[in-house]
Every structure is written in C-alpha cells, then in structure tokens.
Design a binder for these strands. Structure first.
Length: 156
DNA sequence: GCCAACGTTGGC
DNA sequence: GCCAACGTTGGC
C-alpha cells in the first residue's frame, strides 16, 4: 500500500474541515505532476494531511483515498476559480481522487522537525522550493513520522 | 509583506 | 525549441 502527502492551506481547507465533512473531492489541483500522482493512487492508500502557509506549517492528520482518480468537476464549472476552458467532459485535463478523514495526529509534526530528521531528508516537502502539492511518501518515512507524532516533540 | 523557487505561457 | 515574462506557491 502506497503512502502520500496532501498539502492544503488551512484557510482554504483544513483538517478540521475534512473531519467535519468526512470526505471530499480533492479538486483544484492544476499541476501535471500532482495530477499524475493522484492517478496512481489506489483506494485505501493512506496520506498525510499537511497544512501549508500555516503557523507553523506541518503534518496535522491522516486521510485515506476513498475513490480513485476521476475527472475534477471544477474544471467544467465556468464559475469556479479552477475552471479550465480547454477541458471538456469528453477530454478532461484534470483528475483528482476523493479523500476521507482518518485521524488527527496526536500533535502537529512541524516542517521544522521534518527538516531536522536525517531520515526524512529525501522527502519532497522538506526540499527547498518544493511546491508540489501532492507527494509520495516512502514507507519508512511514514513510519518515522507516525512515531514522531506519538512520542511527542523531540530534539533528537 | 517579502521574495526565492518553480511551472506555464507565448513570442520569436 | 528557446527563453523571458509572468503568475503562483509557500516559508519566513
């Protein structure tokens, strides 16, 4: 089972929003690399929920893929900020998965902590300048972060 | 609010 | 196909 990370600005859509709604279409992604990663997701895959542009930025929860990639409904909506005039229902350009809430982490694991961990140095989210909003997470990275969240803040 | 890094667009 | 200009992301 693969693991992933979804970024969201909490002012736009937070872990609390997902907890309340239970499930949502991860619409609005307009980056080909992120789209391709979503197309590779399988139902049941688990993902971290990351708050970007937050104070502090970091991983706050876990969600799971509830539906495989399907055309992103917002691309056809002329009133949506994510409308794409070049996309048609016959030839949709953008796809997205549905995600469901699983849990909040016991505590936020901040970007600062992620950066401080040698074991996590390969993660896209800690790369300077990485703007990819959907990212793969290696199994070892997943375990490490879950452990960090459980054991509390650490300087090691 | 600033600005570096990045992806996309479009002129040529 | 190149690359400058532009818009966006996201940490700080």
């Amino acid at each position: 089972m693969a693991h992933w990370l979804f970024k969201s600005e909490p002012s736009a859509y937070s872990i609390d929003d997902l907890a309340r709604e239970g499930r949502t279409e991860w619409s609005g992604v307009r980056n080909y690399q992120a789209r391709n990663l979503m197309k590779a997701m399988k139902v049941g895959d688990q993902a971290f929920f990351y708050h970007s542009n937050a104070t502090p930025p970091g991983i706050v929860g876990i969600c799971r893929v509830a539906a495989e990639a399907h055309p992103d409904s917002t691309q056809f909506d002329s009133k949506s900020p994510y409308h794409d005039a070049a996309s048609t229902p016959e030839r949709p350009r953008w796809e997205c998965v549905d995600v469901a809430f699983v849990a909040r982490l016991p505590r936020i694991v901040t970007l600062e902590e992620l950066k401080a961990r040698r074991e996590l140095a390969g993660m896209a989210v800690v790369q300077r300048g990485s703007r990819l909003s959907v990212q793969p997470v290696a199994a070892a990275e997943w375990k490490h972060i879950v452990m960090l969240a459980r054991q509390g803040a650490s300087n090691g």
